[in-house]
């Protein structure tokens, strides 16, 4: 477990409702309504906590007929805390982790349900946003301008600005009216 994963898990567990959900799930797998009834909380409240627990890696879900069943990920709780504390990260790993966190923050702030809310004015943030959109392009494939515009328009109406900025940031390459993804690797 990385330091970031451990912090996310511990933060998630520092909540009485979530601990109660885990206490129920340690007994048996359950679906939202059953947990809501047991813990006297509303179904949306339970769904919210389950999502947080799932994101932190503490529970997992599976479809079962009409229900989504949730179960505790026991292996996560078998991890020795001493092992988490002892885990050492190199400076390069920590730097990469910080960059990933920053990217995630920017993406969360500027995208909503897969749409770009606005084009960031800060260049560093805009580059992250452009790289995220560029994940929709297939490496090695050549696109016409119309195809490029259509893909970008799925994210934001101002596809001209985004297309031009992708060229100036060397995320896209262009020759005449043909475009392709630059060969550098996009961040995960």
């Amino acid at each position: 477990m990385t330091e970031t994963e451990a912090i996310k898990l511990f933060k998630c567990l520092a909540d009485k409702s979530r601990l109660q959900i885990l206490k129920s799930l340690i007994q048996e797998d359950m679906y939202v309504d059953r947990l809501a009834g047991r813990l006297n909380l509303s179904a949306p409240t339970i769904s919210f906590h389950l999502k947080k627990l799932e994101d932190a890696g503490a529970v997992e879900s599976r479809k079962e007929q009409y229900y989504t069943m949730y179960s505790i990920k026991k292996e996560v709780f078998m991890t020795n805390i001493i092992d988490i504390i002892k885990e050492e990260s190199t400076e390069a790993e920590l730097q990469a982790e910080r960059e990933r966190e920053y990217r995630d923050k920017v993406i969360q702030a500027f995208f909503e349900y897969g749409k770009l809310k606005s084009i960031p004015s800060q260049r560093k943030k805009e580059k992250i946003v452009l790289e995220e959109i560029a994940k929709s392009f297939e490496p090695g494939r050549q696109y016409t301008e119309k195809e490029i515009n259509l893909i970008i328009a799925d994210y934001h109406d101002d596809f001209c600005t985004i297309r031009r900025d992708m060229i100036s940031e060397r995320i896209l390459e262009r020759e005449g009216m043909t475009y392709w993804l630059a060969e550098k690797k996009l961040p995960d």
């Binding site: 949306p44 409240t45 769904s47 919210f48 389950l50 999502k51 349900y113």
Partner: peptide, 12 residues
């Protein structure tokens, strides 16, 4: 929109 995208925090 939140329901459509199963955004539990926003739904709540």
């Amino acid at each position: 929109r939140a329901k459509q995208h199963q955004d539990a925090a926003r739904i709540l």
